[in-house]
Design a protein around this nucleic acid. Structure first.
Lengths: 338, 338
DNA sequence: TTGAAAGCGTTACCAC
DNA sequence: GTGGTAACGCTTTCAA
């Protein structure tokens, strides 16, 4: 393994000079630089990243904490992260979270800094103690899809998204609109589904439509779970004429349930999803689009800026827009059915 | 920042002893250990990973090189990788590849070792020069979904997969079977699609069915591209009665094309995919299942073993099984249509 | 069993 | 401009 002092000896200079050449310092005479470069080439020298990192006190790494990274929406966000990192000198290390214990373990190890120079946290609230420790240690942190007082974040307005979906269904004449989402009291403290539900409840209320609590179902993010819940809804004495699912994956579960119940979409039942992931266009799903890719991209860019700037980033919140994307899973309510 | 010598001073021992406690060496008297542990707790000491890595000469990191990591099949493999890494002390750093240039850049930086202690390479052939350099440097490497002489690999038999799909369609009485896949002369040198095509050609031949070259279409992995290609096929004077697509994503494009051409699946046309990703069950797609999750898991386990063992791993090839999964997108050919 | 000290390969400060 | 030389914080060898 050829080291910096080998190069220095070969070129007849000091190690410091080689380092300066390496780091493109202007304080090196051109001829010296040339000699050093020649030596590096001759010896096929590669600086040892480990030594650089220790010496600089930075590990050239961005940590991404993401729950259920295989979910379509998470993958889409990660795509944005990777795009933002492309061409930068930072490595991306992935911390997947499937359980609250997982989350705590990751944050515990991350507070022993040196594993990441900056942190992008998706959808989940870091444990307060660890968060304080990280902030105190000067670790730049950007949140995506979750907000915490005093931390920069890229978010969307989930309540508004819930309103958009519900208003769309009301406009089509639906009144028996089911909501299928995640229990607001989930172990991770995810708030997105609950916020969308709030938008749904709010719009129902302001439209003078009584909310029928029996049309609300909570379950995990699995398609199969959503399908089972939707089958329950469809077998009610007075089934819903429309279902608002708080994610597209769940919405496809609803579509599958409709199919197995012999219901036509959108003739017999309308379905609205949330996210607009890749599968949604294929499924013809009307949905609320949130800019997933952009959220990952922007969050990472903010983080990189903070890292380059050196200073602690100004805390700020960027709100990305949501919009309704109309496809073929929604239509005017079929009055005779009701 | 509290360091190892702070702890040593506090506990009244040498730094070496603290290190031994840290690394669970048995050569520490219990009472000494207790004193050191107390000191660490009192000072809230966290070892600096950067220093540990430099000193040990290992960076506790696994590099994963993966083309198009957002593709469903890649995500599923990554899920296996993450599962295998869960609980290990290794970080996962992700190198996404979208272009041949991308690939070369990643391998070039990786050869300056110190960014990863081991490498898992998916689906693509490392540039020979870099590969030799990496192997010479003693970097453990495991390939998944690709084989290179002299390197450990986890693979499946894609030719056999192609045979399974084709035989299934022949058994159903189809003879005009289209193949929709990737150009064997693609810039990455991906071979999976080409191998599946070989299986297809082979079985057609051995069954005495003439292969109609006009029923072969090549395109990128996008659903929309596959859909367009399938639309071409369906508008032929003598359209195919079945399509074998070399991935499930492409197969769903075929399904969409059938839908837009007014063809019923499977009554008018049968479709077989490949991979068995999550969406396939939802789409009711008959497909050739390959163990994606398992391939990532096993590849990573082999890599970890090599890393723990210290020695260069024995070069070996693990072949995972493929199987036909029958769903509702295939049926006996409708003779009257032909 | 333990302490002292020599690495690990850079960077960065301080003279010259 | 450049060389010499402390750091950086840990692991590990060598004595004791």
């Amino acid at each position: 393994m050829v080291t910096i002092s080998d190069v220095a000896a070969f070129a007849g200079v000091g190690a410091g000079t080689v380092s300066r050449v390496l780091n493109e310092s202007p304080r090196v005479r051109p001829e010296t630089r040339a000699r050093v470069l020649a030596a590096m080439a001759a010896l096929d020298y590669r600086p040892n990243p480990l030594a650089q990192r220790l010496s600089r006190g930075r590990c050239q790494t961005l940590g991404i904490v993401v729950p259920f990274f295989t979910h379509a929406s998470a993958v889409e966000r990660l795509r944005g992260v990777v795009a933002a990192l492309d061409g930068s000198r930072y490595d991306l290390v992935l911390f997947n979270v499937e359980t609250p214990l997982h989350r705590d373990e990751h944050f515990a190890t991350l507070t022993r800094s040196g594993r990441a120079d900056g942190l992008l946290v998706m959808s989940l609230r870091p444990p307060p103690g660890d968060l304080d420790r990280l902030i105190a240690a000067g670790m730049p942190i950007v949140l995506v899809d979750v907000r915490v007082e005093g931390v920069s974040a890229v978010v969307t307005d989930d309540v508004e998204g819930g309103r958009l979906a519900t208003r769309h269904l009301l406009d089509l004449g639906h009144e028996r609109i089911a909501f299928l989402g995640q229990d607001p009291a989930n172990p991770f403290g995810f708030t997105a589904s609950g916020d969308r539900e709030r938008g749904y409840v709010e719009v129902l209320g302001s439209s003078g439509v009584d909310r029928d609590e029996s049309l609300t179902r909570y379950g995990s993010h699995d398609r199969s779970v959503a399908q089972a819940l939707a089958e329950e809804l469809f077998s009610l004495d007075e089934p819903p004429t429309a279902v608002f699912a708080s994610s597209d994956v769940q919405a496809t579960g609803v579509l599958a349930a409709a199919r197995s119940a012999g219901l036509r979409v959108p003739e017999d039942v309308s379905v609205v999803g949330y996210d607009d992931v890749e599968i949604s266009a294929y499924a013809g799903l009307t949905t609320v689009r949130q800019p997933l890719f952009e959220s990952g991209l922007l969050g990472t860019q903010i983080l990189l800026e903070a890292l380059e700037g050196g200073a602690v980033p100004a805390v700020g919140e960027r709100v990305l827009p949501v919009e309704l994307v109309q496809r073929t899973s929604t239509a005017a309510v079929h009055r005779s059915a009701a």
